[in-house]
C-alpha cells in the first residue's frame, strides 16, 4: 500500500539525543508534547493573568475547568483526595489537549501511541498501589475481598479481583490508545475513498465531517474517562473496603 492509513502515526526522529545509553531522541511526538504543555500553560496562566474577582470569559473558562475537575475528584474519591488534585488536573489537561490538538489536520496525536498511554496508566497504577499500601498497610488487600462474601466463594473472588486489578493499566491505556488510533485511522480510510469515487466523493466528505464531530466528542470524552477512572483508582487506595 502506498499511503497506509497508519502513516500518520509514524515517529520521525528529529534530533538525536543519547543520554547515558538511553535513546532520548527528540521526535515529532516530543515536539507535540512540548506544544501540549505550552498550550496548557498558556491556557491557564493567560486566563489568570489579570486574576480578578469578576472573571472575564477566558478566566471563567479556566475556573470552570478547575471546578469541574475538583468536583469530579471530590465526588468520586472524597475530600481526602484533595492532595491529588494537581496531578489529576495536569493529567486531564494533558490528555485533553493531546486529543484535541491531534484533531487538527497534519498534526501528530501523542495519545495514539501505546507507549505514551501505557506509561501514563502504568505510572498511575504503580502510584496508586504504592500509595494504597503506604496509607493502609496490609489493609489495602481488603480491596481484593469484598465484605459480606461467603468463605467458599472467597478464593475464586480474590483471583478475579486480582486479575481485574492488574488488568487496570492495560485497559486504561488501551482504551485511550485504541480510541485515538481507531478514530484517526477511520478518518484516513474514509478520506481515501473521496478521490477514487470522483463525483460521488461528496458522500464520504459529508460522512467525514460528521465523523470529525464525533471524534472531537470522543477526544473530550476519553480525556474525561481517563481522569475519572484515575479518580476511582485513587478512591480505592483511600477507601480499600468497598
Amino acid at each position: 500500500m502506498e499511503h497506509s492509513p497508519l502513516e500518520q502515526f509514524e515517529i520521525k526522529r528529529l534530533i538525536e539525543i543519547p543520554i547515558a545509553g538511553l535513546d532520548a531522541a527528540f521526535t515529532n511526538s516530543s515536539t507535540f508534547m512540548v506544544i501540549i504543555v505550552l498550550s496548557v500553560w498558556f491556557f491557564v496562566s493567560f486566563g489568570m493573568r489579570r486574576a480578578s474577582l469578576v472573571p472575564g470569559r477566558w478566566q471563567s473558562l479556566v475556573e470552570m475547568s478547575y471546578e469541574f475537575i475538583a468536583k469530579m475528584l471530590h465526588d468520586s474519591a472524597g475530600p481526602q483526595a484533595r492532595a491529588f488534585f494537581p496531578f489529576v488536573f495536569s493529567l486531564f489537561m494533558f490528555v485533553l489537549f493531546a486529543n484535541l490538538i491531534g484533531m487538527i489536520p497534519y498534526t501528530f496525536t501523542v495519545t495514539s501511541h501505546i507507549a505514551v498511554t501505557f506509561a501514563l496508566a502504568g505510572f498511575i497504577f504503580v502510584g496508586v498501589t504504592v500509595f494504597g499500601f503506604a496509607r493502609n498497610g496490609a489493609g489495602y488487600l481488603r480491596l481484593l475481598a469484598p465484605a459480606g462474601i461467603p468463605a467458599v466463594m472467597l478464593p475464586l473472588l480474590v483471583v478475579i479481583e486480582l486479575i481485574s486489578y492488574f488488568i487496570r493499566p492495560i485497559t486504561l491505556s488501551v482504551r485511550l490508545f485504541a480510541n485515538m488510533m481507531a478514530g484517526h485511522t477511520i478518518l484516513k480510510v474514509i478520506a481515501g475513498f473521496v478521490v477514487p469515487l470522483g463525483i460521488f466523493g461528496f458522500g464520504p466528505v459529508f460522512f467525514l465531517i460528521a465523523l470529525t464531530g464525533l471524534e472531537v466528542i470522543v477526544a473530550v470524552l476519553q480525556a474525561f474517562v481517563f481522569s475519572v477512572l484515575t479518580c476511582i483508582y485513587i478512591n480505592d487506595a483511600i477507601h480499600p473496603s468497598h
Partner: peptide
C-alpha cells in the same frame, strides 16, 4: 451515560484494534 458510552465504545474498539 457518557462514561458508559466511552467504556462500551472502547470495548468494541479493542476488536477493531486487533483487526488493524
Amino acid at each position: 451515560v457518557y462514561i458508559g458510552f466511552a467504556l462500551a465504545e472502547a470495548t468494541g474498539l479493542f476488536g477493531l484494534l486487533i483487526a488493524l
